[in-house]
Design a protein around this nucleic acid. Structure first.
Lengths: 352, 352
DNA sequence: AAAATCGCCGGTATCGTTCCCGGAAAGACG
DNA sequence: CGTCTTTCCGGGAACGATACCGGCGATTTT
């Protein structure tokens, strides 16, 4: 156990190998003017001596620190944790490491994190910006990639998100295929960017299918369990027409809706059908299991890192990447496709 | 928007302020031989010019990078994500930043992450070691603090964990207070260190209460939903004595047990009572809500960083810190304390 | 055969910061 | 007034690595 207190440097290796430090640097870099024989010899000596490259010094001289930044709302949120994991894995494959920061949807914190990243001389960053806080990003001065929503304001940067339009299509088609022709839409609060995107996707899909978007009933609430619970209570009050179907814009709201239904003595999926959106792990443990549309969180993280590398390499196409979502069927949606046609027509005609 | 492509250096600030770079360094450091007047002036110039300290260079020259490492099994696991969040917050308060790595319970990956941390010249690290992989840690060569379990093998390093003994006491006392005198113990697999600690705590508590530990029935399985489900099926097969109570060593297992009970047509909490251990968020959304013992994950993260700072400052007492757990009552535990005494006695006498 | 090219390597400057040393100015004291 | 501290600041040497330049043989070109 005689590990040297002070780590070895490149000149130590050079002395041990009987070459100059330039040669050692070339051997380590792997691409310089060096013969295969000496490279092997040098690397062998370096390994045997337990040399480990000082990435601080490398970053300082070469201008590339090998560090990447990730600024997300909250690492303790399961969705963002998945994103972080994907980014982490991809960064590691490329030999860089990730510095993760949680902004808690707070402008000041976000600005502070961006400053920290600049001081750490990260090569670039992946950011999910707090709504309306684009000034700090504009003066960030380093390459970055957006993740999540709200990419509209940055025409010159690339971004990675989930394909909301495709997800909504998937959800509505599934609802219809199970015999739910007029589902309630449970939306988030008006100031959230995600709400507008969700609603727009619904409208477009309705137009494609020759359905009047205005015919779909709506309720709204916070993107939380409590918000979904409250919204569901209002829905159950307004809708007395037998089976109630709900398409929630968020899994937590969907879970809340499930709880509200139970409180009201309604059984899911017999009396109430619920479709969620996100794919949080908790949805698998509820009863019944939450049928939902899963966002590709981990893949988004991976892809964002790849986009950032493109940006860094100068071969940036500034594209928007929208990754497809996946339907996860569990048990919260009743199959009503076998009902007599008359019943379906009656439901469609009913006014809540 | 004319941000300089190349960031300013300390000599730029020196030129702007009309002093030497040493003086600027002193002003920035905040404690050197410098008059209050010049410090103010220099800082003002630095701020106005948008100077930002290069932490790479600082780390290189001073030997302290301001970087901390955190190696955990999986950042996408809600428990570890909470730990990471706590560590992150505390590190930020102290002006350092955290590099997080997921080992996936894999020896090779863990070793690789430790190497990366050494190359990044982190000041120290917080590690939840993969079982039996202590060699890599021993040759890590940098200050570190253990988090989670398995601290026994490192008498010379401090560690932070949850107080399993107190948690088990809390759980067993609560079970008894609700009239569950002989709960099943649902344990993890034999090779996991946590299992032994849990079992030891149970034994100690039983001895204190003059109960024969061997009288408590047990089942075991993987620390997963599927593992808990399988274990619960075996329990229900073996125990035909009316109400079945289970103390699971892990929330995921508890959730699995709940699902198995439902499959078997048993109602929770009327026919079956379940107590979990961990405090994962999903437990709040199950039906019924999972009564559980919550580990102070975020506090553990914070505390681990503080211990690491102590270690770095040389004032390490190499202590073991065990943070208390908290009982969270939801609905998975029936209150049977009001039953006639005869029934309770009969239950205690019954053989599964 | 002289000149140009090429592969491979060593020496030196440099990245941005901190640390140490020495010196100038200012105050203290006999 | 001379000397001795004390306070404050500037100059240079590191830290560990890479970038660049130039040199030396060996090979190729004209």
């Amino acid at each position: 156990m005689k590990r040297a207190a002070r780590p070895l440097t490149i000149v130590d290796v050079a002395r041990l190998a009987g070459v100059s430090k330039s040669t050692v640097a070339r051997a380590l870099a792997g691409d310089g003017d060096i013969s295969e024989a000496t490279r092997e010899a040098v690397l062998k000596v370096a390994r045997a001596a337990g040399y480990e490259r000082n990435r601080l010094a490398v970053g300082m001289r070469s201008g590339r620190s090998g560090l990447l930044g990730l600024v997300i709302p909250d690492i303790a949120n399961p969705f963002w944790a998945e994103v972080a994991r994907g980014a982490q894995d991809r960064a590691q494959e490329a030999g860089s490491s990730l510095m993760i920061f949680s902004s808690d949807w707070d402008h000041g914190l976000e600005a502070q994190h961006l400053r920290t990243l600049r001081q750490a001389r990260v090569d670039g960053a992946i950011v999910n910006p707090v709504a309306d806080n684009f000034d700090d990003l504009h003066r960030f001065g380093l390459p970055f990639v957006l993740i999540g929503s709200s990419a509209e304001r940055f025409p010159e940067t690339s971004s990675v998100g989930s394909d909301i339009a495709q997800a909504v299509r998937l959800g509505l088609d599934h609802l219809v295929s199970k015999g739910h022709f007029r589902p309630w839409l449970m939306l988030g609060p008006r100031w959230r960017i995600a709400r507008a995107r969700f609603l727009r996707a619904v409208t477009e899909h309705c137009v494609e299918r020759d359905v009047d978007p205005a015919s779909l009933p709506m309720e709204e609430g916070e993107y939380t369990v409590a918000g979904g619970q409250a919204a569901m209570r209002r829905i159950l009050e307004r809708d007395r027409s037998g089976h109630v179907s709900v398409f929630a814009a968020n899994d937590l709201m969907a879970l809340g809706a499930m709880m509200a239904a139970r409180e009201a003595g309604r059984n899911c999926p017999d009396d109430v059908s619920i479709l969620g959106f996100d794919g949080v792990p908790a949805g698998a443990f509820s009863w019944p299991g939450l049928t939902t549309i899963e966002k590709p969180a981990r893949a988004m993280g991976r892809r964002a890192v790849e986009c950032l590398f493109d940006e860094l390499a100068g071969r940036a196409d500034h594209g928007r990447v929208y990754l497809p979502c996946r339907l996860v069927e569990r048990g919260s949606l009743a199959d009503r496709s076998g009902r007599p046609a008359a019943a379906a027509v009656a439901e469609m005609a009913a006014q809540p």
